[in-house]
């Protein structure tokens, strides 16, 4: 196995419910390498999504280390962590989380604007647009560029979300139950698309799911129970 792009070492995460500490991650070790698909499998409340958020630097660990290319990053500033998140990670959520005011194309383009100054963006505008259109065509939405999320089906929305996650050319995709809100036929199509894109681009891929069948398609399955990795 190649060196991990993203890793968690002895990560714990404890939430406070009033005065009551709720441990959600209890010393998790986890890694994903470039080109590898890892399925995080577990029941609801096992800590899969929390681990995904910690790996994606959306949530700091209570203890332990989050490593990007072997470098501990959990102590970086908010700005530095945001920049790393932008460069390393693309998120795909169960509920798509597209911005309703924007068209499919604008939602994808937005990902490219996040860390780009205005002047540079304006200089590269046509090239960025070309890439966004190409991505949307790749996910089968070439005819839906100007449609807003409300005008798209669930599967189409998730395809837009995938294109958005890929535009910034991340090293790893973190997908949190990406098919949880889709019917089985659409879900299969979306998963096929994600895995195909992952292979083409050699991305690391962390797929949170509680679907055993879907998990079996991954290169490696990591099972979580009560905040611990059990296999």
């Amino acid at each position: 196995m190649t060196a991990p792009v993203l890793a968690a070492a002895s990560v714990t995460k404890t939430f406070q419910l009033g005065r009551q500490p709720i441990p959600v991650l209890r010393g998790v070790d986890f890694a994903v390498a470039a080109g590898e698909i890892v399925a995080l499998l577990g029941a609801s409340g096992a800590g899969k999504s929390t681990l995904l958020h910690v790996l994606g630097l959306l949530d700091p660990p209570t203890s332990g280390e989050v490593l990007y290319d072997g470098r501990a990053v959990q102590h970086l500033s908010v700005r530095e962590r945001a920049l790393l998140r932008h460069r390393y990670v693309g998120f795909v959520f169960q509920f798509y989380h597209l911005i309703p005011e924007l068209t499919a194309l604008q939602n994808v383009l937005l990902a490219g604007m996040m860390a780009t100054p205005i002047l540079r963006y304006l200089r590269e505008r046509s090239e960025r647009r070309r890439r966004a259109v190409a991505l949307l065509e790749q996910v089968g939405l070439g005819e839906r560029l100007r449609h807003r999320p409300a005008e798209l089906s669930g599967g189409e929305r998730q395809r837009v979300a995938i294109a958005r996650a890929l535009l910034a050319e991340p090293r790893v995709i973190l997908a949190d139950e990406p098919t949880g809100n889709l019917d089985s036929a659409t879900a299969k199509g979306v998963v096929d698309l994600m895995f195909s894109l992952q292979r083409q681009r050699g991305l690391g891929f962390v797929l949170v799911t509680h679907d055993e069948a879907l998990a079996r398609r991954a290169d490696r399955v990591v099972r979580m129970v009560d905040g611990r990795v059990v296999g």
């Binding site: 994606g56 959306l58 908010v78 700005r79 945001a82 920049l83 998140r85 932008h86 460069r87 998120f91 959520f93 989380h97 597209l98 911005i99 937005l110 990902a111 996040m114 860390a115 958005r164 910034a168």
Partner: peptide, 16 residues
Amino acid sequence: TADIGILAAMGGTPLG
């Protein structure tokens, strides 16, 4: 509020 979470996931900061 939902957009605020999306922006953060895409690399946005509270300042942004």
